[in-house]
Write a protein that binds this DNA or RNA. Structure first.
Lengths: 337, 337
DNA sequence: CTGAAAGCGCTTACAG
DNA sequence: CTGAAAGCGCTTACAG
């Protein structure tokens, strides 16, 4: 495939010049530039990344870290975010290297190898990740961006989902559809996104004059464990046993909604006539379950792309103050509500 | 973090010597080696990958390619395989770079960037991938291993699932459980794995004296499109309409089984009493659907690890003849059969 | 506007 | 058994 030398020779210039046009730097005569570009074309030349890295110190890689558990979920949520990053990375010819971490992170014990070997210019972290990891990265001055997560009291670059409005719209739709006793079930309540969804739920209730008579307190089930179909089943059970008039439920995410749906069907309750249900995320499964789930759609690819772009900005200008970018959501009306 | 020079200085040897102990090559006196190792320890030194790459020509990366569509599936099948590779890669401090390709591949138009830039030492391809891609890689003499796929008539390194015995066991279980009219529904029949599953199905039928009276011809539904819940719904519908005595169905994979399940339930037919159902793959969702799906479990992490190991062997010894390694499966009995 | 030269951090013959 | 030196393929001041 040739090296920069071959190009220089063919174009009859020095390698410095080739490098300059390659990187679009300095002044190069129009003629010369043309010649060089032609040679590059002709030889199908691609500069060696390793060599470039050695010379510049940049790796051209960015790391992507998620909690290992998300690989065992039923959901394809984080994979989609990753895919969004990969798409963005293609445009810049950089790579995104994915790895997982355990729930607990101790820098003294084990750190992702791309950190250990300094093989990334920055890292994106999606979903719930160990705070110790984030602090570690911060301490090492490695540029980071959090995706769909935030650490209370700390200020990091992050890409957020508009959890509040998503939830608000979902619950508002339920209300507009005639539902009056709308429950909430959710896990990982310490998760900022879940809290925001709850806030949206409450405010939509209030806007529709549905507060009161035990609403929403008696109609809320939250538990501080990982969200999952199991939490959905359990949550709806508790709510159903406690309130015979429950006529709708907003679940903090789709897997939870799936679980709730299963339990509701087990009890031979009709969806959506007797109990309507709406989730959050719009994972692929939601379109296939029965009935098909009405849910708040999160543009996962866009999340990934935005994260990639923001991270690159941070890498280029490390001294800028942290940014928060929020990505909008929209309600997908299907059969369950 | 220091460079090789710092280590050399600290250990009072030349950088050549440091390099030798780093790579466990040549002869180095016991004393010297100790000193060097101590210095490496003390300074927490990690050799620069870029520099090493430049010097050796090896990249230390391997590519992982799947069809883009698998990212939009409901299933977490390929993600798990990827995770298996990532686990294996950790041990060797190499990276696996994941990218997707479209259904059609034309090297003249677009090739994955890590191929274009020569940034991987080899590549693993999982599931159905464009034959033109595989041939392209082969032509470029890039070491490859296929995972759960094969190209008829071609001989490539590959990691296979024991599709035949998996299917056989599944159907045998159905038969032993009293089922007599056992159907088969599947998509992508051109896929070698699916063919093998069908062969297992047939042989198990035969071993249980279930062939005849239209079995299995009348009880088989295959279509040459991507497997999905939709195919499951459609397939079981056709079978049900055609054979009133159908009492079980073996689906070519879990998503298909999910679809079939949905349709069966829609018709108010009892699972497993009236119709038992078993799938293949054991994706996470299978444990959560209702009823929980009996299925053939594929050790996905093991698939990934094996692929990684085989690929590395091929990279080290490119002239060895192609190998096929088969990973066993096992039946997970849950509620649907 | 262009080129010669140093340097990035390694590995690998080659001497000794 | 160990070191001096060339080389891997780039980038980047620095002259001119």
């Amino acid at each position: 495939m040739g090296t920069i030398k071959d190009i220089a020779q063919k174009a009859e210039v020095s390698i410095s010049t080739v490098s300059l046009v390659l990187n679009n730097k300095g002044y190069v005569g129009e003629e010369t530039r043309k010649k060089v570009q032609q040679a590059i074309q002709d030889m199908n030349y691609k500069p060696s990344r390793s060599a470039r890295k050695l010379a510049t110190g940049k790796t051209g890689n960015i790391g992507f870290i998620i909690w290992e558990g998300h690989f065992y979920d039923v959901e394809m949520f984080y994979s989609q975010i990753f895919l969004g990053m990969e798409y963005a990375a293609r445009k810049t010819d950089s790579y995104v290297i994915l790895t997982t971490v355990k729930e607990e992170f101790d820098p003294k014990k084990e750190v992702p190898r791309f950190l250990k070997y300094n093989d990334v210019d920055g890292v994106a972290l999606a979903g719930r990740v160990p705070h110790t990891l984030v602090e570690y990265l911060d301490r090492q001055r490695i540029p980071i961006v959090l995706i769909d997560y935030a650490i209370p009291g700390k200020n990091y670059n992050c890409i957020q989902i508009d959890n509040y409005h998503g939830a608000y719209q979902a619950v508002d739709h339920l209300a507009k559809t005639g539902k009056k006793r709308i429950g909430f079930v959710g896990g990982t309540y310490f998760h900022p996104s879940i809290k925001e969804r709850y806030r949206g739920y409450r405010d939509a209730l209030e806007a529709n004059n549905l507060i009161g008579n035990g609403m929403p307190e008696e109609y809320t089930f939250v538990e501080n464990v990982e969200t999952s179909p199991l939490i959905g089943e359990k949550g709806i059970s508790v709510l159903l046993d406690r309130n015979t008039d429950l006529d709708a439920v907003f679940c903090c995410n789709d897997p939870t909604a799936m679980g709730a749906m299963k339990e509701i069907q087990k009890r031979k309750i009709k969806i959506p006539d007797e109990i309507a249900i709406v989730g959050f995320d719009d994972i692929p499964t939601s379109g296939f379950c029965m009935p098909r789930l009405t849910t708040v759609s999160v543009p996962k690819l866009a999340l990934g792309k935005e994260a990639f772009n923001l991270l690159n900005e941070v890498i280029d200008q490390p001294s800028e103050p942290p940014q928060v970018r929020t990505i909008g959501t929209f309600l997908v009306k299907r059969e369950s509500a």
